[in-house]
Write a protein that binds this DNA or RNA. Structure first.
Lengths: 300, 300
DNA sequence: GCTTAATCATAGATTTTGCTTATGCTAAAT
DNA sequence: ATTTAGCATAAGCAAAATCTATGATTAAGC
């Protein structure tokens, strides 16, 4: 008979993308989790994960099992919260966000947190947000992690490459890869919120390309719609893709960013973590995992 | 942290209406269940049951917790069935019913079983159904239990008194209790499917009342609508009540019937019960428990 | 091409959980 | 008053889950 522990372990692996990290997340050792998953796979009579080196992926059956498991965990969350309903909505959650996080992703996160928290969003630069975290002015923040950044208060969400986006009807659409010099004639669009704006600029200068700009905007959505409209091309994390634009690989241009959730260090350090904030963290993690599967892994 | 075992135990008590019977149902001893419930009540921080002698009732909090628990159990059922989906809908369930079971109740039962089984209903008399059970022609049957009837294959669902129903605008409506002789002038309606038809007839004869009949019908629904229409009065189990009629207590008339589910004895005897039929049994039990709470306990 | 590092699986020891039997307690029925 | 029915409590025990330690496999680095 399937138990709650099985469900938790399954979801932890889905959300962490690795047995080792998942084990740490739910505070058990990796062997315990291995055997738990093995047991669950025996119970449902089919493998749920494909264990490749470096990446754990769901099998087809695992994909079908996922919504059932999510549903159960949601139900248990409701049951666990039962009786604590008096402080419902009392807790305010201050969430920091950088501008270049996908609006769609952020919408999903806020929608999921809304019933349990009085949400306040703080939009700011990465460095400002990190400072705010240190001073306790915000509870958690969605921002790009520094390469290899890890720790108790760091929850890696997903890593994705930056791509050069061009209109779907652009002459270069369909090419596997182009050299930077082939883009010399292109008009660019600058997403001013991009963390890699300077680096990208330097990359092209280094290859002798000095691009013209058709638009500089703080709004990712506007920039990408203008790409779809064909007035120029721009770089962006692949998960920001919208209808009508396609990614194009540029030789030598391989920036990646890892989005993560960083929680108030003072809070993360506590041995007995506040269950409500843990709930918030887990919710974000779960949504990010689904997002990664449908948007990032799919885009490559 | 609340676990599946807690949920199962909670629902078993709700459905059985007693710790002892609930324990038997889920195959644990009564102390094990007591401590499980105590643990759950500690986890949610409030009592869920009122332990009166002779009856276990849900507290207000318990009532709010019930849908959460039902939801979880449904979810687990889906998870357990995962991977066994090939024999989905293959199993045919032959359910016997007597005519005097509430149509609304039966509708709820069939609706709940429909997704998992190819249902076949066999409507027949109690004695015929018992014979069919013995010969394995039906899998289970909804019928009135004989007084005190118990056993492995017997699942008591709810007990309810028979009442004399009169139109809501009848002169006697509002009276607490009347003597049988006060009904001498009344026109009666005979629900021919009623197991207590003969006994009722004898009851009135014994008190010197020889009633006139305005209708004899196999259809409970028609009989009760005719009571509401005012052409006569009739006796029926209280859960059959509809809009426009009210129950009236008649001195000395206190028949009760206990509705139960009896399963194929050959099947119930097996040590390792077929999970799909166990599922069917549990579904019926759960619906009956809710029915009892809203219809029978409410009506007194 | 060999070594190192990372990650999941397996084995055996240990702790924890949940169950059982036995018994006590309380309210209702006789 | 005594018996009966039903839930709570206690102590002992068995099974399940976890932990530590180790092995196997693969990717990456020198």
């Amino acid at each position: 008979m399937i138990k709650r522990a099985h469900v938790r372990q399954f979801l932890a692996v889905v959300d962490a993308g690795s047995f080792t990290q998942a084990a740490a997340r739910i505070r058990v050792t990796q062997p315990a989790l291995s055997s738990g998953i093995a047991e669950l796979e025996k119970l449902v009579g089919t493998p749920l994960f494909i264990r490749n080196r470096r990446q754990i992926r769901l099998t087809e059956a695992g994909g079908r099992f996922l919504p059932i498991a999510r549903d159960l965990e949601r139900g248990f969350r409701a049951a666990d919260d039962f009786g604590r309903e008096r402080d419902r909505q009392a807790t305010e959650l201050k969430l920091g966000v950088i501008r270049s996080v996908s609006g769609e992703f952020l919408q999903a996160v806020v929608t999921a947190l809304r019933p349990s928290f009085a949400m306040e969003l703080i939009e700011n630069s990465e460095s400002q947000l990190r400072a705010s975290l240190g001073s306790g002015r915000i509870n958690m923040a969605l921002l790009p992690l520094r390469p290899g950044e890890r720790g108790d208060e760091v929850v890696p969400l997903y890593e994705e490459p930056l791509a050069m986006f061009i209109a779907a009807d652009h002459p270069l659409a369909g090419r596997i890869e182009v050299g930077p010099e082939e883009l010399a004639a292109e008009t660019m669009i600058a997403r001013r919120s991009c963390e890699f704006l300077d680096a990208t600029s330097r990359f092209f200068t280094r290859h002798g390309v000095r691009p013209r700009f058709a638009l500089r905007s703080e709004s990712d959505e506007r920039c990408l719609r203008m790409v779809a409209a064909g007035i120029g091309i721009t770089t962006a994390p692949v998960s920001l893709a919208i209808e009508g634009i396609v990614p194009l690989k540029v030789a030598g241009y391989d920036f990646r960013r890892e989005l993560g959730l960083i929680v108030d260090p003072a809070w993360a350090a506590l041995p007995d973590v506040d269950p409500r904030l843990a709930h918030a963290r887990d919710t974000v993690t779960a949504i990010a995992a689904d997002w990664r599967r449908t948007r990032v892994d799919a885009a490559g």
